[in-house]
Write a protein that binds this DNA or RNA. Structure first.
Lengths: 212, 212
DNA sequence: CTTGACACAGAAGATATAGTCGGGTAGTAT
DNA sequence: ATACTACCCGACTATATCTTCTGTGTCAAG
């Protein structure tokens, strides 16, 4: 008789998931403690122990950032998947080897949520032409919360949504959005500007290439 | 003029990718050093610096296991993706807001490779009936190399391929495969037995549930 | 009114992990 | 010859991170 997760446990699971999605690696106790808004590691440890007991996550003793979310955890978070169909095997008596059928099967409607939020955008305009992004191109955007100087980002500004290179440096104008076309001006980064995601790939002639 | 990755750098990238796929979190310097088969951390650091310079990965100074593979890295590894199509935005002048179209677009044939190797299996037999896995059921398998006692696994034995619970304990019979049906015998774990993956979900009446 | 589950505080100690320093070799280009 | 790049060795240091210990308060169940 498995018990369901408590509110606090669900919160922590969500915190872990979001952290991984955002950084690419799991959080430390300290980072989770911070996100939970408590002052002691002990709380985190207690909750992690429960989550592990309930097979929602898995950890390794003494290893830094060693939290992995197990399938049950993803299910609780509502993150489904897509998979190829490989054939039949046996759970009872031994039977035939696996034969590859090569079919595909949707596990849920919400496929994109599998690992991260990604979506496609059609570009209009030529302000990023020197980065190889041209009018009419389709680019792939990965949603993110943390950004590194030099990355091409999707930004929301009071004037609208736009794609530019994000620059953060320690000399004026410090933080701004930079077009890759000399005919356009930099956009200073103000409180009104919100970064939505990173442009990671671009489709050219039907094939995908990385942006740089 | 970007230089391509050297052989060694590609090897390290692959090592990092495999480690993450397998454990759910990135490796330490020590673990990478081991996989590279060298005796000094410095080698790893040198290669990581190059990979970071070439925008293949991204790291944070002083932070444990803080390697994230960037889109270019995934491209080099040949791991594509699938994404919903959201609409048009502007790279030039500001234009309209994003409108959701809700279409889907395939980025490549090889969709399953996105984040990990997963596939479906049709079960025959009733040896796992007490775990809720019945004859004719379809289960989802995630390929893995490391296994924890208690997990339901897909195993290859000299007699054939089978699904059982993997048990590893410090009393006899120590390591074995356990059916979830009293009518079946345990299978002792020998050198001939190879674990291929973990059963993470099962489809019942068209919907997916976690196995326990 | 005791017991247990849940949630949290605060601090000390142990160890896992990143980083630094100062080298060495082989190959290739200037 | 000199300079560069890719690749590697080994020992040391600094700190990031996990763990352990002891104790508090609440709330619901027996």
């Amino acid at each position: 008789m498995k018990k369901p997760l408590t509110e606090r446990q669900k919160e922590l699971l969500k915190i872990i998931y979001d952290f991984i999605k955002n950084t690419g690696y799991p959080p430390t106790f300290e980072e989770m403690r911070e996100s939970l808004g408590v002052s002691s590691n002990q709380s985190v440890i207690d909750h992690l122990a429960k989550l592990e007991e309930k097979r929602v996550i898995q950890r390794k003793k003494g290893i830094a950032r060693s939290i992995a979310i197990l399938p049950i955890g993803y299910e609780i978070l509502g993150k489904p998947g897509l998979a190829p169909f490989l054939g039949a095997t046996a759970a009872g008596a031994y039977t035939e080897a696996i034969e590859i059928k090569g079919e595909w099967q949707k596990l849920s409607q919400d496929v994109a949520q599998l690992q991260e939020n990604i979506f496609l955008l059609k570009i209009s305009g030529d302000s990023m032409i020197n980065a190889g992004i041209e009018d009419g191109d389709v680019v792939l955007v990965r949603e993110a919360k943390e950004f590194v100087s030099g990355e091409i980002v999707l930004a929301e500004t009071p004037e609208g949504t736009t794609v530019k290179r994000f620059i953060s440096e320690d000399k004026p104008p410090y933080v701004y959005l930079k077009p890759e076309n000399p005919n356009y001006e930099n956009i200073l980064f103000t409180d009104d500007v919100e970064l939505k995601g990173k442009i990671s790939s671009i489709m050219k002639n039907g094939t995908w290439k990385s942006v740089k």
